[in-house]
Structure formats: C-alpha cells, structure tokens
Design a protein around this nucleic acid. Structure first.
Length: 224
DNA sequence: ATCCCGAGGG
DNA sequence: CCCTCTGGAT
C-alpha cells in the first residue's frame, strides 16, 4: 500500500533476519522459565511474575499449588492466606485479587477450564495481552500473538526492530516480520538474551555476538 | 538508586 | 497519557 510503510517493514525485517538466526544459535532450546504443569498453573505463575523474577515465582508456586491445586480451590481461598503465600513476589494485594478474580471467573464462566482464545483470556481479571500470550504460546500451543515484556521492549529498542517503542506496536511489528510458528520462541530468545547478555543496567556488548549489527552495541563499543 | 517475563485505574 | 501497586536483588 503506502510505500513508506513497505519500506519500513522491509527495513525492520532485514534487521530481524540478521539478528534472529544468531539468537537461534545462542539459545536453541530457549523456553519459558516459569515452572508449571498445566495451563492453570502457568496462568497463575504468570500473574505472579509481574515485576518479579521467575526464580522467585518458582519458589512461591509449589506452596500456592499445594494449597490451591485448581481454579475451584483457588476461588475459595481466604484473601489473607493467599496474600501471605505470595507476598514475596511483590504487588501481593493486587496479585491476590487477580488470582481470586481470575479463578472465580474460570469457575463461573468457563466451567473451571482455562480458555484457549485471546478474547476469552483477556476477560479474566489481571490478564492482559502479555499474560494471555504466555499461556497461549506455552501451555496451549497456540500462537495468537507474541508475549512482550520489559526484556522484549528493551531489546527491540536497542537492536532496532521497531520504530515506536510501545508494547502494542512492538508486538504488531514482531508478528509482521517473524513467521507465526516462531512467535513463542521469538519472545523466549529475546528474553533469554536480555537476561544473560543485554541487561537493563549494563549490557555486555563486548561479549555480545549481535553487537556489530546492533545500533546500541555499535555505539557503546565505538564501532563503525 | 534501579530493575524484575504487568495490569488497572484515573 | 500518567500513576499506583510491592518485595527482593544488585
């Protein structure tokens, strides 16, 4: 359609085609680092993961699922008891409210099952596109979108995979320039690189194989 | 002081 | 668009 738009997509796609194969080499087996056994557990763990490390969530969920093994049990939890279990994950009042509201809706509107569409998932309290995409892409094997978290935002901005750094635009752009069957792995590999190399505070550009093709890496290393 | 696989409300 | 919610790690 618009020539400017075509030019824009061809530019970020060529950048993606340079960067992504290297991420595949670096992290062939990247995966969700939250521990879970089913969609309900991943949904709950992902709600807990907001502004919290996966490691801490994984320390919390064993007690959570022991006490509340399914949506029915979680929906009947005492708020104070639930809050005390999840407290160390932070935002514990909001998260407890989300877990309760989410599980109550699962029981009332979805016969105790986690729905498998974006439209239904984002109706759940405390669930928006990012959480829905994690559950869809990992526990349900459906790529309806791409989970965009703080790592994905940071790497897309540094590497230059989108011009407008908002979660919505980043997700649209990544969906546009990557094959659908890769969407879950695109997110995982960006996140793995973000955690291991492209840190928020001090990116390790000198040991990053992407640096020569990364605007931020070139700038920090004083290349070209 | 800054950041961690966000979401809801004003 | 902004703000708030929170504990833990560095």
């Amino acid at each position: 359609m618009e020539e400017v738009e075509q030019e824009y997509f061809s530019q970020i796609k060529s950048q993606f085609d340079i960067i992504y194969p290297r991420l595949v080499t670096l992290y062939p087996n990247a995966h969700c680092e939250l521990n879970y056994q089913n969609a309900f557990q991943l949904l709950a763990a992902t709600i807990l993961s907001a502004q919290c490390t996966d490691e801490r969530v994984n320390m919390t969920t064993p007690a959570l699922f022991a006490n509340y093994p399914n949506p029915q049990a979680l929906s009947e939890a005492q708020p104070e008891e639930l809050e005390s279990i999840i407290r160390s994950c932070g935002f514990y009042r909001n998260k407890a409210r989300s877990l309760l509201g989410m599980s109550k809706m699962l029981v009332q509107d979805f016969s105790g099952q986690v729905p498998d569409t974006m439209a239904e998932l984002i109706r759940l309290p405390g669930v928006a596109r990012k959480t829905a995409n994690v559950v869809l892409g990992n526990a349900l094997g459906k790529n309806e979108g791409i989970p965009v978290d703080t790592h994905v935002i940071r790497l897309v901005a540094r590497i230059g995979l989108s011009s407008q750094i908002t979660p919505e635009k980043i997700e649209q752009d990544l969906m546009h320039i990557s094959p659908r069957e890769e969407w879950a792995m695109v997110s995982h590999r960006l996140i793995w690189h973000g955690r291991r190399v492209c840190n928020a505070r001090k990116p390790l550009c000198e040991q990053c194989t992407l640096a020569p093709d990364c605007p931020t890496g070139r700038q920090i290393l004083n290349l070209k």
